[in-house]
């Protein structure tokens, strides 16, 4: 658990982070969103002591981080930044092994971990281990950056706009992979972005910042249904609200018994995709499949109810 308790940071007397209080539950993803210059990066960097708060305190699992030496704390916390920051003179394998080496892991254990992570991120260890970062594509570099951050099995992963430089297709894939990895490892993730779409897609909670202040911290459903300020409503985009709500749920959770005509949809798809499909094929219901077998149907009526403002 990360507890940010009434934390402020001033630069030249001006608060850049202004009395922020935020608790991040273990094993969840908290996405910090806000416009450029709202203090997101500064807030994130206070968690691993790259920036010290001017006032207030931060605790990790109940322990005040002020009492932990910075380098020790940072080795316990994964950190992935935009532009990945891979060491250009070290191979992919050596990059990933950075923190294990700092922690004094033995060679065999480190090598196993490197290969395990490369496989987890769908990079063939044989082909990638000994390459230099400049011999990778942007998407591959980004994955290696996240793999490196996870190398020493940290409980906490901080990510600062990790997908900013990726094209939309690769970004969607990377986000999907991150969710799968987070579920598998149970890592607590704090991710900074200025993309509300990304926040809704990834966050268990979304923390919205503006001018250094935390405006609202809540689940995506809550933020979409009941934005605390007009600014947050604007970030979400009022015409987008119903679709964003639908994007949060899986088809699997809304299957009804019965039959329907036409091409089926997979139970793992989002309701938003199902809705688009139904409108496009001019149907009022569609069959749902799981592992290739038809397990029921989804109706337009049900979707319409789910897309309405939550009470």
């Amino acid at each position: 658990m990360i507890e940010i308790d009434d934390v402020s940071r001033l630069y030249g007397g001006v608060p850049v982070v202004d009395h922020v209080t935020l608790t991040i539950q273990p094993r969840t993803i908290c996405v910090v969103v806000g416009t450029s210059g709202s203090g997101k990066t500064t807030l994130l960097r206070m968690i691993n002591k790259l920036v010290n708060p001017s006032s207030g305190s931060l605790r990790i699992d109940g322990e005040d981080i002020a009492g932990i030496p910075a380098y020790e704390l940072r080795r316990r916390i994964g950190y992935a930044i935009q532009g990945h920051g891979l060491f250009p003179h070290r191979t992919v394998g050596q990059n990933i092994a950075t923190v294990p080496k700092l922690l004094g892991w033995d060679k065999a254990k480190t090598a196993d971990r490197v290969d395990e992570l490369l496989t987890l991120f769908q990079l063939d260890p044989q082909a990638f281990r000994d390459r230099l970062p400049h011999q990778l594509s942007g998407g591959e570099q980004q994955r290696v950056g996240v793999a490196r951050a996870l190398a020493a099995k940290p409980n906490i992963l901080l990510m600062d706009e990790p997908y900013g430089a990726l094209d939309p297709v690769i970004r969607a894939k990377a986000q999907h992979d991150l969710l799968a990895i987070q579920r598998k490892l149970g890592t607590t993730i704090v991710l900074v972005t200025h993309d509300m779409e990304e926040a809704i897609q990834l966050g268990h909670t979304i923390a919205v910042m503006a001018h250094g202040k935390l405006l609202q911290s809540a689940t995506p459903t809550e933020i979409i249904g009941h934005p605390a300020t007009p600014f947050i409503a604007e970030l979400i985009g009022s015409s987008e609200r119903p679709f964003r709500l639908l994007a949060l749920s899986r088809v699997a959770d809304h299957i009804e018994p019965g039959v329907a005509e036409g091409a089926p949809i997979d139970a793992d798809a989002s309701l938003r995709d199902a809705y688009a499909d139904m409108l496009w094929s001019a149907r009022s219901a569609m069959p749902v499949t799981r592992h290739g077998e038809i397990v029921g149907r989804l109706t337009l009526d049900a979707l319409a109810k789910l897309a309405a403002r939550p009470q």
Binding site: N48, F87, R148
Partner: peptide, 27 residues
């Protein structure tokens, strides 16, 4: 040294000396 590289080295918990010897000087 590229700022992102220095930031990453710090963020991963290298001490000043380790950053110098393992990152800054080789680059």
């Amino acid at each position: 040294t590229p700022p992102a590289v220095v930031e990453a080295a710090r963020g991963m918990g290298m001490t000043g000396w380790q950053r110098l010897v393992r990152v800054e000087l080789p680059i």
